[in-house]
Amino acid sequence: MKESPQRRELEEVLRSSKLVAYGFMGMDTRHLSEIIDNDLAEVSRAGYTLEQLAGRMQEITDQAATRFGGWVEINENLRARVVEAKGRLVCPWPHPGRFNKRVTMVEHLKTGETISWSDLNIHMISEHGFFEGKGSAFRLEPEELFQMIF
């Protein structure tokens, strides 16, 4: 499918390091639409919706943010902490979306596995279905994500 000029422009921004180091696409050579479609299919196959995923992520972030960087027990399997840095992250899509530079780190207490997301990740999943490209600093694998948080 031919991509519109707006879509091409967006993809250029996502591949550049204008907004975040290494860019949002990492080493992923697939088109943006392909990345989004594949991830969305994986979410659907697992029986979830983007809203459910983003909603649960936000819930964990809100719980963890109460201890200013300290660990918070989310449930018997999970603990999480939120680390904040100076500045804001801007959504690469053309709308005024700005988010605190805040990273939520989640650890599975039994397996020791960890996963991290920024406030911007939650927004991009919820509003744009974008989990970032493979190899980017904040790429979230949908399957790893729902196995961890649900």
């Binding site: 390091s17 975040v20 180091a21 530079k101 904040f138």
Partner: peptide, 11 residues
């Protein structure tokens, strides 16, 4: 300076 994961300047 505290390291920001993925931060352009702190990296």
């Amino acid at each position: 300076i505290r390291l920001v994961p993925g931060g352009i300047c702190t990296t």
